[in-house]
Design a protein around this nucleic acid. Structure first.
Lengths: 346, 346
DNA sequence: CACCTTTCTCGAACCGTTTCGATAGGGCAA
DNA sequence: TTGCCCTATCGAAACGGTTCGAGAAAGGTG
């Protein structure tokens, strides 16, 4: 590989002039500029990013740490972060913690150590230990998706309370009163918010929340399946609508209904938070509140790059960016009237 | 951040001794070793990887380029590569090309430029132009999944021919003769191999391949859906079994059958290559040939690291590692006899 | 024409390591 | 005791850039 010296030699100028030309073209005379750029072209010069990083004190790398790459939410997030980063001439180092704290610690240890100049992170678990080592990070970082209460940092996420509220309102408007809620991993920020959104909206409409219809468990298809099995075998007490706190849980719920031969939406309405991957091939198309994942990604990247740019000088106050979800009405929710009419017809 | 100088100062030795201690502990006396490690501990020293990379001439980074992170095949691949790389103290830079050549070029340009010391790549498209800029990469690289014919490199992939053959044989054993094949993106290596595996196995069993049952199109759920719609509306000529060349296409096919109220597996058997994400929540569980994605990832990483280690000195011959898929019998395939019996009962 | 700016280019120091060749000191054989 | 070899340590030169201060050249003004 050719170095800056090769260019200098060929262009018959000093290496500092070459550097100057490449970084601040305005500060050299036009013909020097030409000589240098031509020479660079000839020897096929590209600056060594490692040497640049060393001298400048920071690299053009940012780290992104997520719980599970295979989850399409994170997948889309990553793609967009990468796009934005590349625009700003940054490269992205992706790491998957598999939701495990030990991995998260190891990965963060690797990433810090002067290699990346900033980190975008969705915390794996909300325990104190996690917060400790995250706040110990002495470099810019931005949290997304899962917010940690006690951490001083920028945060970008969906309005999970609103997402729940939108779907709950939708179901209420359709005439549903016995609405079940299948909640996510207890302790997780999003799970708490989503549950609260459901409860608040029900309360606001003066519909009592039946504790027996409030399920809780980890974010997973299995839990969605199991909870739905429990809910739909309650006989007369069974809900007329189910709100699942995640895409995977909604899928599990749908599966359970299918196996019980309970038609959706005819006999039970089903809605979920966050889009279902492969939504196109799953029928009925599930009514969901879609998280603006691309916007979240863009925002998180922007915030991080800004914080990297400003450095520790002139510390700007931390921002909390909460983006609104979008309601996508599918075929899995239907007015309660229709259910009764249909039910009577059988 | 503390530097090697701080350690040297505190331990009252020269910086070269510190470096020596940290890199080759055996080459310093035991008490020097203790002094240095203690001092390093005290100031919280970790070597600056950027400076190390600059001096050593290569970084501890490898690049992985895939067509679509959200595809679970690539997702699992990435997770495993990352794990293996971390074990060897390497970090992974992931990039998504969205299957587009322009992106691939841009990404490779960014990655090379002395930043990463090697690249693992699944080529987006098999056109000449792609091969040109890939072979122009003057650094170690390993190809996986999609093989490019004319490129000198290591390659790791599934035995796609075998995957098709296994599933075809399975269907034949179940008594099926009118077996349709929904092929993947024409021109892609895997698509070609999978199609050939089907044809060869049919031929070996002396079952004629009906060209009307040989569909072709891009790897996508939509194409699987559309092809199945065409196939299953052929009336008496319709196939009794369908083999889809990818997971997404199998899902699309299943959806089409559902919409046509053609029961799977009662009226048509369905099999696919590559595991279906969320397989657990999709019924019937589809019979598939699973690619050993973790093995592929491990192998690709191993090959790359080996090639990085050997450098351009002592060039070892390129390896082609072809791993066998695993057949997972689901509930979507059934003996043809049963189909007839059931059909008569209606 | 002398003097003062401004513009352009250059040399040198530095970023934090690794590594090579040199040196000092200690042990051992003669 | 002298000479020699090892071993442990060190100084200095890289790696490939960026950047600062200085100096030369060019241009403008009185």
């Amino acid at each position: 590989m050719s170095t800056i010296r090769d260019v200098a030699q060929l262009a018959k100028v000093s290496i500092s002039t070459v550097s100057l030309t490449l970084n601040y073209p305005d500060r050299v005379s036009p013909d020097t500029r030409r000589k240098v750029t031509d020479a660079a072209q000839v020897v096929g010069y590209t600056a060594n990013p490692i040497a640049q990083s060393l001298k400048r004190g920071r690299s053009k790398l940012i780290g992104v740490v997520v719980a599970d790459i295979t989850n399409p939410f994170f997948g889309k997030f990553l793609i967009e972060v990468e796009r934005c980063a590349m625009e700003a001439d940054y490269l992205v180092i992706v790491s998957d913690t598999a939701g495990r704290l030990a991995n998260e610690k190891a990965i963060l240890a690797h990433l810090s150590g002067q290699l990346v100049s900033g980190i975008i992170l969705s915390p794996a678990c909300p325990v104190q230990e996690a917060m400790d080592h995250i706040s110990a990070l002495n470099m810019p970082f931005v949290l997304f998706d899962q917010k940690l209460a006690d951490i001083q940092s920028d945060f970008v996420g969906t309005d999970n309370h609103l997402a729940s509220a939108m779907l709950t309102e939708h179901l209420i408007r359709l005439g549903h009163k016995r609405i079940a809620f299948i909640g996510g991993t207890p302790g997780l920020f999003t799970a708490q918010q989503r549950k609260q959104g459901f409860i608040d909206t029900m309360t606001a409409s003066q519909i009592p929340v039946d504790p027996g219809l409030l399920m809780e468990g980890i974010y997973s298809a299995e839990h969605g399946y199991e909870a739905t099995m429990r809910l739909m075998t309650m006989g007369a007490n069974r809900p007329s609508a189910i709100l699942a706190a995640s895409n995977l849980m909604a899928l599990g719920a749908l599966q359970a209904c299918n196996e019980l031969c309970i038609a959706c939406p005819d006999e039970v309405s089903l809605a979920g938070i966050d889009d279902v991957p492969w939504a196109a091939v799953i029928r009925p198309r599930i009514t969901v509140a879609i998280q603006p994942v691309e916007d979240i990604a863009r925002m998180a990247t922007r915030l991080l790059l800004k914080r990297i740019a400003t450095g520790s000088s002139a510390p700007t106050p931390f921002e909390d960016v909460i983006l609104a979800p979008k309601l996508l009405i599918g075929e899995s929710t239907r007015a309660l009237i229709a259910v009764h009419a249909k039910g009577a017809a059988f």
